[in-house]
Design a protein around this nucleic acid. Structure first.
Lengths: 200, 200
DNA sequence: GCAGGAGCTGACCGATCGGTCAATTACCGT
DNA sequence: ACGGTAATTGACCGATCGGTCAGCTCCTGC
């Protein structure tokens, strides 16, 4: 029994299928993604998909679940660390890194979190997003402040995730590091300075 | 020949169907909206839908086309008026009003503009959005400036359109006027002040 | 050498999809 | 009273959907 934990020799079929499914879910949507298309895109048959994943919904869970876990951790840490400006700054960087590292999954559950209401994994994502909003934005915050938060997070998410429509994709993709810095700057501008109430 | 132009006596079936379709497209997505569901929701049969609209795609065109026309007009006026700070301020207000008055349509073609690529009406919407981005953000603008624009417009759009997930919907909806003012304030903050280059 | 399980697949199922068509109903000017 | 047109509908079509199942091919431990 030399290796019990994932032999890296060959790529696992379930991983290929999960990745193909994630790409399909993010680009054409969950409802419009057929198991046949996912199977074709990954080079397997539809039956193989249903062999590795019990249902289309289980495939969605496998595709975006890990990213939701990360988001929940991010949220938990931020809540524990307090809402001071310094903590916010740290959070902003971690949040942007999270977006950059999970573009497809975030695109999927942000863009379709409303239309797929009812699926457990989507409910979990929506709950996390709501918790994120509540934690940054105190209940008694002004509407303008809530708007500032919403515009920042939603705008950042959309820019990284579906940004191809807005950004010049004529010239090739900007380096991730560049995008990260620019985005962190804009978010800090929005969420840290604030007109009169930097801490609360 | 007393009245040739739209007798307002009774609601037109085509309008009811178009509205029901728009709601379905915005909430569950175009691909996941069946003609049967739309017909049921409007109180007609599926055949009636296809009597008034030649196809599902034609129904989408009727549902979101007018909003795209408005967006194109908005864009044309802004391009003609120049990019000065004052012109930007006017544009911001008009843009927010446009969002408020066309929430469902905007939600549809912004959220699904990528997945529905190929449909003519969607291509028109994407072209308008791209034109909007290019017109505000000069080609030589820094990446941070492009980000600022993208975050502002995408964030504002998402807040008004799918904001139920982020905003407190526990207590009831804020008045549109309040939302409008708050959003105009945040957008002005982002797009007018700019760090060093207010005009260009 | 062989039993057996994992991986993979084609055939098939009922349901639903977008769309066509013929028939029926309701309403109109004459 | 009647002919014609607009509006509406149910029956039906081929295609595709998510999902089930039996069988096929390997590879491995004994």
């Amino acid at each position: 029994m030399p290796s019990d934990v994932t032999v890296p020799s060959r790529v696992r079929a379930s991983d290929e299928l999960r990745q193909a499914a994630l790409e399909q879910f993010a680009t054409v949507g969950f409802a419009a993604s057929s198991l046949q298309q996912i199977a074709d895109h990954a080079g397997y048959s539809k039956s193989s998909v249903l062999y590795h994943y019990a249902s289309k919904e289980a495939l969605l869970e496998a595709a975006i679940g890990p990213a939701i876990d990360l988001l929940e951790t991010l949220l938990r840490d931020f809540v524990a660390g307090g809402r001071a400006a310094a903590a916010r700054a740290v959070f902003i960087e971690r949040f942007v890194d999270f977006l950059l590292g999970n573009r497809l999954a975030v695109h999927t559950f942000v863009n379709q979190g409303q239309s797929l209401r009812g699926l457990p994994v989507i409910e979990r994502a929506n709950t996390a997003i709501r918790g994120l909003a509540d934690s940054i934005c105190a209940d008694d915050a002004s509407l303008a402040e809530q708007m500032r938060f919403g515009v920042a997070l939603a705008g950042a998410t959309y820019m990284l995730v579906a940004g191809a429509t807005f950004l010049d994709d004529g010239d090739q993709q900007f380096a991730d590091a560049e995008v990260r810095d620019a985005l962190v700057a804009v978010l800090s501008e929005l969420l840290l300075t604030a007109d009169g109430r930097p801490t609360r």
